[in-house]
Design a protein around this nucleic acid. Structure first.
Lengths: 143, 143
DNA sequence: CTAGCTGCAAAGCGTTTGCACGATG
DNA sequence: CATCGTGCAAACGCTTTGCAGCTAG
């Protein structure tokens, strides 16, 4: 796979060492295909490299966030969710009632971002967004 | 002021006792005119009633959230922000660069909420929302 | 050789919980 | 008087930090 090389290169160029731990963490993030918590990353990485520490995961995530390769989102439950920043932005409708998470199409958010930019000159970081509320099912139950 | 009586009434009706601590916490929230953290509430309350504990603040906030008198928002910094749910909804543009917070008008968000409802049947809780990004000033600096 | 990175352990932070005492209706 | 609420202290979960040893350039 060439992607491992690419990210190794990216790390080097920004003055960081491409250690095995970092590459494994990167791999875990890329193959997750969605959000993962720091602990989930740890578990995935430990499958092939058992002596990795949670602090290394956090430190690596900090580096990757600085490089804008990874995004962090707080979805309300105390733990942060991390995600590979490669794909198209996508957003979440988090139901406060049942905890289910649905996806929200990107179009609507892009339009919002454009509007904010033209009105305020503020570049909204809408690559990954969580909207809280109540889903259709729980709305029914409320009555 | 009649508002104290009103909230005392509201507490009673939902089966909770209007204790002095609760009324003080309510007052602190109402007079804050914006977001406050649990600790800020504690400090305000202690000014007139020194032996209040942070756990009481949290417990009261839980009750008030259930009664929908108060909203909670996570603005990224680890601490939650609480706010009196009386006024019009308002939203925040939080700059990741300088940490400044600007206001975003409600109209745009209301439109978003309507769209989400009609497409997904999901009632978005957009009463108080935080959008992260980069402000105009920091965008300039980036170059 | 001299950075930088790691694992381990311990601390930090906001928040929650167990418990006995006190206040409320 | 039975219940609910409180203060205190301790625990909690996620994240960060200090430190000594190791590793890569």
């Amino acid at each position: 796979m060439s992607c491992e090389k690419d990210t190794a290169q990216a790390l080097k160029e920004s003055g960081h060492r491409p250690t095995p731990q970092r590459l494994l963490i990167l791999g875990a993030l890329r193959h997750a295909g969605g959000h993962v918590t720091a602990v989930e990353i740890l578990e995935k990485v430990r499958a092939s490299y058992p002596y990795v520490d949670i602090s290394t995961v956090y430190r690596t995530l900090t580096v990757l966030k600085e490089m804008r390769l990874v995004t962090e989102t707080d979805m309300g439950g105390g733990e942060s969710q991390f995600e590979w920043a490669g794909g198209e932005g996508h957003h979440h409708l988090v139901c406060k009632g049942c905890g289910k998470v649905a996806l929200l199409d990107d179009q609507r958010m892009k339009a919002l971002g454009k509007g904010i930019m033209s009105s305020y000159g503020f570049r909204a970081d809408l690559g990954h967004f969580a909207v809280f509320g109540t889903c259709a099912e729980c709305l029914k139950k409320e009555e």
